[in-house]
């Protein structure tokens, strides 16, 4: 009996040790991430003022803002979304509707999942080879193209997943009243999956709004206001990169503030996107 109870005690002890470790892992992991966000808010909020949004990026050693960088990010993100979203939605539509069980869909699904986590700097190199080198100069257009290539896999994935959730009975009802396939897709499947597809698009915006690596040698950077798509353009992430590594305190402060802005944007977009699908699940 005593042998059995000592075994029992040992097992209980081992369990307690392992469970404590796992609680500690959760504590350490979440605290660590909390620490990063805390530092970000602390340092970033210190430089937050109206001039950040109204003034251009300053020369070294002077005060200024991030206006041209913010505008550049918005412009390039916007173009990337306009180019990338239709391709992504259409490809996702093919995989979920026309070719759900086809070999092509299987291959695209696999490749798309790889593109989803492929190193973004390699995408930057690709666009450099494809656009910057032939054109002979860096441009906002090339930056937007690189971002668009990151948008596509995200949108493909969510579109396909969301269309797959649409019950087949809905499609059959559409077909039964004589609607051709594309009208069923447009008026039934898209409509039923709309909030999910929008979620995917928002997540794609969140994904590219913080991307730095693919912009480094496509859009480059620009100290000044630029409205031409054919010239280098500033973006928030690249500006943060440049300013953070500089020895000037004003620049470093702006980098922190920019980092805070990006994080707030990304978190805001993700939370909003999630709330769209969460409502759907509750229904």
């Amino acid at each position: 009996m005593s042998k059995a109870s000592s075994l029992h005690a040992r097992r209980k002890l081992k369990n307690a040790v392992m469970m404590t470790l796992s609680v500690m892992a959760a504590g350490v992991g979440l605290a660590w991430l909390g620490l990063i966000l805390g530092a970000l808010v602390w340092k970033g909020a210190a430089g937050l003022s109206l001039s950040v949004f109204t003034e251009m990026t300053p020369p070294p050693g002077e005060a200024g803002g991030l206006l041209n960088a913010i505008a550049g990010s918005i412009i390039m993100t916007f173009i990337a979304m306009i180019v990338g979203t239709p391709i992504g939605v259409l490809a996702g539509t093919y995989m979920a509707e026309y070719g759900r069980y086809s070999r092509l869909s299987m291959v695209v699904r696999f490749i798309n999942d790889i593109l989803l986590s492929a190193p973004s700097i390699v995408i930057g190199l690709f666009v450099y080879e494809l656009m910057v080198r032939p054109m002979g100069h860096f441009s906002a257009l090339a930056g937007a193209a690189a971002l668009a290539m990151l948008v596509v896999p995200v949108v493909v994935r969510t579109t396909e997943d969301m269309l797959n959730l649409v019950p087949n009975t809905l499609r059959e009802a559409g077909t039964a009243i004589g609607a051709p396939r594309w009208i069923v897709i447009r008026s039934v499947a898209y409509r039923a999956a709309l909030s999910g597809i929008v979620t995917g698009i928002l997540l794609a915006v969140a994904r590219i709004s913080g991307e730095t690596a693919p912009l480094l040698f496509t859009a480059l950077n620009n100290q000044f206001w630029s409205s031409s798509l054919n010239t280098p353009m500033a973006s928030l992430p690249v500006t943060i990169f440049q300013f953070a590594l500089s020895p000037y305190e004003e620049w470093q402060q702006l980098a922190w503030t920019g980092a805070l802005l990006i994080t707030l944007t990304v978190l805001g977009l993700s939370i909003f996107a999630r709330s769209l699908t969460a409502r759907r699940e509750d229904r």
């Binding site: 990063i36 530092a39 970000l40 340092k43 997540l203 969140a206 994904r207 709004s209 913080g210 991307e211 730095t212 992430p237 943060i240 990169f241 953070a244 590594l245 470093q252 980098a255 922190w256 980092a259 990006i262 994080t263 990304v266 978190l267 993700s270």
Partner: peptide, 13 residues
């Protein structure tokens, strides 16, 4: 979903 540049700037400073 937090961009990696955030981790970078935190790491540096």
């Amino acid at each position: 979903g937090i961009p990696s540049i955030i981790y970078g700037i935190w790491g540096l400073f």
